[in-house]
Design a protein around this nucleic acid. Sequence first.
DNA 1: CACGGATCCTGATGGC
DNA 2: TGCCATCAGGATCCGT
Length: 271
Amino acid sequence: MPELPEVEVTRLSFADRIAGARINAASLGKSLRWPLGCGLQKLEGLRVLGVRRRGKYLLVDLSDGLLLIHLGMSGSVSFGNDFPARSKHDHFELVTSLGTLRLNDPRRFGAVVFASSESDPVAHKLLGRLGVEPLSEAFEATSFHQALRLRRTAIKQVLLGGEAVVGVGNIYASEALFMAGIRPTTKAHRISKPRAALLHHAIQQVLTQAVIKGGSTLRDFSNAQGEAGHFQLDAMVYNRAGLPCKVCATPIKSIRQGQRSTFYCVSCQKR
DNA sequence: CACGGATCCTGATGGC
DNA sequence: TGCCATCAGGATCCGT
């Protein structure tokens, strides 16, 4: 599920509510992608200072250290007071003075990792290679074009790679390429500067719109208050194979790139 | 060393 | 109803 918009929507839905909380207890369910990296008792008594986001990671700042939370393919965070009993896919729980935070993740591709600081080798391993934040000032059309010139693979793959820009996953890569009129199979280094600028703008627009719409809920995404997103209803190409293009009515085409589905319009995206 | 592919895991879905 | 194959929002690791 979670690309940048879903992670940001999650953050917005609980960051203010958890800030200042005291951690009373922490517990784990089944193993996630990586071990927590500290004892559960280490977390007890710490305060939650706030929640930031880097790429698709949530960074939960604590009075000593921080937690890096990744939602993988199927993860979602919930935070509140009146909760049902833990379900079998709740694999991490923090009971705090202001509510209980849970990570539910059926496929367990997600992770919760403790780091003593952002310069901790553990944090650096996960965050160190991430590219520029697409919704920050640092994401700039000229340098984005320069980054694309270094890559000889299909532009869709480069967007998913997270080195030229972070946070764009399978849904929003297809959507941004449609908005920019660029075919997903085009080699990244062959994209001209003006067309890179179009794509740069499209990425910002698509991600911003998706955050406003509460993210995309295809199956199981919900924010920390349990609310679903609605961007999937606005999708121009994603998951619309065979359906008419919303612009020109040509049937949307579906292909596979690197084991992932890609959707595009052969008429609106010619190169 | 840039790239493509296999891989981790569970659940939903569709064909037979 | 069951069995099997395929697919799903991610990202790392490994071989070429």
